Simulated scan of single mutants.
Amino acid sequence: MNPKAEESFFKTIVDAFPSPVFVMDRSVRILAHNAAAARMLTMDINYIPQERAGTVLHCIHSTETPDGCGYAPSCRGCVVRQSVGRSFQGQQIVRERVKMELMGTDGEIKERYLMVTTSLFGYGDQELVLLIIEDISELLKAMLPICCHCKKIRGEAAHWHPMEAYFMEHHNIQFSHGICPDCARKYYPEIYHNRGLPAK
């Protein structure tokens, strides 16, 4: 496969990815993006390159100072900015969940829950970061009918599932099991006593 065909092939793959994907530099400027990113944004896609993430995402803090995204006091705690920075500092993959306040096309401020993933990669002699943004607002807002006694979750067709089985089947989330200090004191008082830990 010649270089142009290879480049076109990989661009097709990235554009098929359903979540917005951005290529970022150290200043958190967007150098490239995929088709899903273009659909997510309301600005002309020709103006996206070289803009900072907060500007194109319509973060409300990006308009707090004349210099824009990255210069407001709130920007120091920005998860997008911090995640990109941590990847550049050597942490290969960073994955964080964040609540952001974004300006909608109607001018209203909307809270969105995002999963932010960054990954460091090299291109030629440059170090760049891949930024993937997944909107998980609907997932987090979903109401789950749960038994107030045994904590089983009601799924489709009124079937009740153990919590661990439900999350594994629907969200591919696995649980690890431990024991909290309160339950350890209640169910294993001899262990707490033998270890000299204080009773609650």
Score class of each variant (00 low, 15 high):
109 I>D: 14
167 F>E: 08
124 G>Y: 11
84 V>W: 12
94 V>P: 08
57 L>D: 00
50 Q>R: 14
93 I>E: 02
108 E>F: 02
7 E>W: 01
179 I>T: 06
15 D>F: 09
35 A>M: 14
4 K>F: 10
82 Q>R: 15
55 T>E: 03
134 E>V: 12
54 G>Y: 04
193 H>W: 01
147 C>P: 06
184 A>G: 05
109 I>G: 14
45 I>C: 06
38 A>K: 12
107 G>Y: 08
99 K>L: 08
149 H>A: 14
17 F>Q: 09
4 K>H: 08
111 E>L: 08
172 N>S: 01
42 T>Y: 08
39 R>L: 14
187 Y>K: 03
146 I>H: 14
5 A>C: 04
38 A>E: 15
84 V>G: 10
117 T>D: 04
191 I>M: 09
31 L>Y: 04
170 H>S: 11
77 G>Y: 11
150 C>W: 01
12 T>M: 00
130 L>F: 06
98 V>T: 02
79 V>K: 15
83 S>K: 05
82 Q>W: 15
132 I>K: 02
6 E>G: 00
100 M>V: 06
28 V>W: 05
55 T>G: 06
156 E>Y: 00
188 Y>M: 00
19 S>Y: 14
132 I>T: 01
118 T>M: 03
124 G>N: 10
106 D>A: 01
74 S>Y: 04
132 I>C: 00
100 M>R: 13
3 P>N: 12
190 E>G: 10
143 M>S: 03
168 M>E: 13
161 H>Y: 07
163 M>Y: 12
130 L>H: 07
28 V>R: 01
50 Q>P: 01
91 Q>P: 02
28 V>E: 05
131 L>I: 10
